[in-house]
């Protein structure tokens, strides 16, 4: 991709409503030997309110793509703009802030802190964004009501079912009001009934205008999204 076309695209980004995610020629190579080209030349745009699924077999590079999208990892090359902010030039501290403010994560294995209550787990995602404690608790309660877990607020996560835990994780991802909800195999550890409940939560969020990117190897999960992209050997196929 030439420098000239990059300039052209950033100019249009000012004119049109900026997409949430804008990846141009993004690469991620892991130095070897042997060098692993996990992501080669990915161009991806996710507009506001879009519900996108990225599907691919294991080893296809989809986890690496998720980490790049979530600012958990740095591309080897290319351009990545999140909410119009060029993330390539940011220092680590600034990236952490951006990550906390703009991205909500939902993981396959939930990643809840076992020794905190459900409410505290949800409130945790606002700690590093600088929300005062009282407001954190209030917002966490609202988020838990939204995912239907108001009655579980003071429980330990270990006492919840897998589906409930994933809903706690979703509440945690939503409570800081991110621009993008990134889900990595969100139903991978769930039975089909619970998986269905989670997908319904995603549908609702989509209708409310949330931007979602779900990464999965499951075609059924993928089919619920508004738009699907397939990733094979580190490149996207439309």
């Amino acid at each position: 991709m030439s420098e000239r076309s990059e300039t052209w695209m950033s100019e249009t980004a000012v004119a049109l409503p900026a997409p949430v995610v804008e990846m141009i020629g993004v690469r991620r190579f892991f130095p070897g030997p042997p060098e692993v080209q996990a992501i080669r030349e990915v161009d991806l745009t996710i507009g506001q309110g879009e519900y996108l699924s990225i599907v691919g077999p294991s080893g296809s590079g989809k986890s690496t793509l998720l980490h790049l999208l979530g600012l958990l990892d740095n591309p080897t090359g290319g351009v990545y703009r999140l909410d119009g902010v060029d993330t390539m030039s940011l220092r680590e501290r600034r990236r952490a802030v951006l990550r906390g403010e703009r991205i909500g994560f939902v993981f396959q294995s939930f990643h809840l802190l076992d020794h905190r209550t459900v409410l505290e787990n949800v409130a945790l995602s606002m700690v590093y964004v600088g929300v005062p404690r009282r407001e954190r608790m209030a917002r966490a309660r609202v988020a838990l009501q939204r995912v239907g877990l108001a009655h579980r607020m003071d429980f330990a996560p270990t006492t919840l079912s897998g589906g409930e835990r994933q809903r706690v994780a979703i509440a945690r991802a939503l409570v800081a009001e991110p621009s993008l909800l990134l889900a990595d195999e969100p139903t991978g550890n769930l039975d089909s009934a619970n998986a269905e409940a989670i997908l319904e939560v995603f549908d609702e969020l989509h209708h409310e205008g949330m931007t979602l990117a779900v990464i999965t190897h499951d075609d059924h999960v993928s089919s619920r999204a508004q738009r699907q992209v397939r990733i094979v050997d580190g490149t996207l196929q439309w």
């Binding site: 952490a96 990550r99 403010e101 990643h111 945790l124 995602s125 590093y128």
Partner: peptide, 16 residues
């Protein structure tokens, strides 16, 4: 380690 990862994902900088 996973808690550290989670906190980093939630916006914690290295110094946090």
């Amino acid at each position: 380690i996973s808690e550290i990862g989670l906190r980093r994902a939630l916006g914690a900088a290295r110094r946090h």
